[in-house]
Design a protein around this nucleic acid. Sequence first.
DNA 1: ATATAATCGTTAGTACACTAATCTTTATTA
DNA 2: TAATAAAGATTAGTGTACTAACGATTATAT
Lengths: 172, 172
Amino acid sequence: MKTLDLKESIGLLLKTSAKTWEKAAEMELSERFGLAGSKWKIIVALSLKEGITQKHIADMVFVEAPTLVPIIDRMEKEGYLTRQADPKDRRNNLIFMTQKSKKIVDPMIDCILEIRNMGLNKISKKDMEIAKKVLTQIVGNTEEFIRQKGENTDPDIWTDLQNKSQKTLVKL
Amino acid sequence: MKTLDLKESIGLLLKTSAKTWEKAAEMELSERFGLAGSKWKIIVALSLKEGITQKHIADMVFVEAPTLVPIIDRMEKEGYLTRQADPKDRRNNLIFMTQKSKKIVDPMIDCILEIRNMGLNKISKKDMEIAKKVLTQIVGNTEEFIRQKGENTDPDIWTDLQNKSQKTLVKL
DNA sequence: ATATAATCGTTAGTACACTAATCTTTATTA
DNA sequence: TAATAAAGATTAGTGTACTAACGATTATAT
């Protein structure tokens, strides 16, 4: 019976680093701003562009549209944002920030940058560039594979970001 | 109001690569072996060591013990494994593979290695080594941070693996 | 122009992961 | 030894994702 050499498992390493990173962000941002889960990401998304549709936010924070519905419901009740019907296209709900959320954008972004510095401590710029290149290539390879297998990758999100698309994405 | 430079977002990159990678593995392994989610990981775990406790498996596949209960239930019903009471310690359920699962271990591992090669296509050994070093450092930094914040990181899983602990982990 | 497609928000249903709490059994310790 | 703590499996409850399907609205196509 064959066996896997786990120290070569890039999948394990990817998962571990993504998960640990997210946990740190989660802890810090929910403690300091009371915004857990996707909430703070939604606010960051809106700080980049207000008055966008729920679908657009979903793309930016990397979840499907239905996932966002109850979250936006709650955030609206809590006074962080408002839904407004789009007069140009009545299918759309346009989402806007309230004063309450606008006030916390700056400290929140500071907080995010702190976390980023902490996570990247003791890593040289040069190595980091290489790591980013490698990860980008991995995403490219894997999306290519998924696409060939039929399953249409949703609008090739990462590549999209690289190309400075107007659809900016949010995730720490 | 401040703004985040998303192209510098290592968090986004980590999440994207981990997610895409996992999706590819998921597609391939569920299509070829009908084993979705954690199921194939459990079999890989058992191929490394049989007769281990559910807790041990949970650690290996990176989930909490309760998450595994219904999954092992189903896999037992489907004939992939069996629970056996530990005569030495009656708290433990020891998990064993059946013939059915033993038979698919080798092709499954081949499949995993294929995916790994696909994902790492066009990436040089040297760059990959650097990327791994960087990711490991990130995990280290972040776990350190989480630990300081109180929240005890569960037994420092990744470091554990590096140290060739007997607790081997499974994740592609 | 009218029929057909596609899109946004939503609901419903499912799956999965987590935490907290419970039961049983084993370890510790006073 | 008796009391207390700890550990494995489980249940219950919650949160969060996802897909599939629907209604309303807008775009496309014949």
